[in-house]
Design a binder for these strands. Structure first.
Lengths: 115, 115
DNA sequence: GAATTATGCAACCCCCCAGTTGCCTAACCC
DNA sequence: GGGTTAGGCAACTGGGGGGTTGCATAATTC
């Protein structure tokens, strides 16, 4: 990984939109916070922290898993979910590129205004 | 702003979810990319770049505006939309705090494993 | 092996979202 | 002022998201 790859703002828009959408729910934000700060957790454990039913939590976990934010593995009769950092790192880079673009744009505008 | 405020992962979950949700659509991602890299643009200008109708774009801009990602002002008969950087900066900080939390968690786990 | 626990699957409800079409108003241009 | 352009408002549709309940099944436990 010696060469720095310039990430374009428009790269993989569908995948990014999927990850953003997965984070666009307060229940799922809470699940992410839980699973990124502890051991892998089972569905029942995660449901116990919430007022929602186990099935609702299962669906939310499915959304997070399809976005790649968590992954799951079977352990006996339990299904353990763990955090996967890559997708959120990509979002972070994307947001950084947007900010950078904006900085350049507004700097250009200002210098033109005081022409 | 001399004191550094530690942003908790659980701060303002509803507002964050709203901003994430606003970004969870490829059309809106395209609008953000457009509006963060140029002058303020009118609805018709933004709709011309898209295959969707003007009304669809208007609705998407409404979602972005309610999330604070863009703001609008009237100029004659046009309504001009411009990028607002703060919400995305907050998301960036949030994602950074999640990554940091995860790093600490996994470091703790590793050191315990090789006990 | 009988009770308990963890989960999956399916059907159902409600509501919001994305997108469209149709129509109406206001501003601009000559 | 008449045509054109920018936009708002409302109604409608299709589909998917969030949530629930009910039931079936596999693994655990004693």
């Amino acid at each position: 990984m010696s060469r720095k790859i310039r990430k374009r703002i428009s790269a993989k828009p569908k995948a990014k939109a999927r990850v953003f959408a997965a984070l666009g729910d307060k229940t799922r934000l809470a699940l992410v916070a839980r699973v990124c700060s502890g051991e892998a957790a089972s569905i029942s454990q995660l449901a116990d922290d919430s007022k929602l039913t186990r099935q609702a939590i299962t669906k939310h976990l499915g959304v997070l898993e399809r976005a790649g934010i968590v992954s799951s593995s079977q352990s006996g009769r339990e299904r353990l979910f763990r955090f996967e950092p890559e997708p959120l790192e990509e979002l972070q880079q994307y947001l950084a590129s947007v900010s950078k673009q904006w900085d350049q744009t507004s700097a250009r505008r200002k210098s033109r205004e005081q022409h």
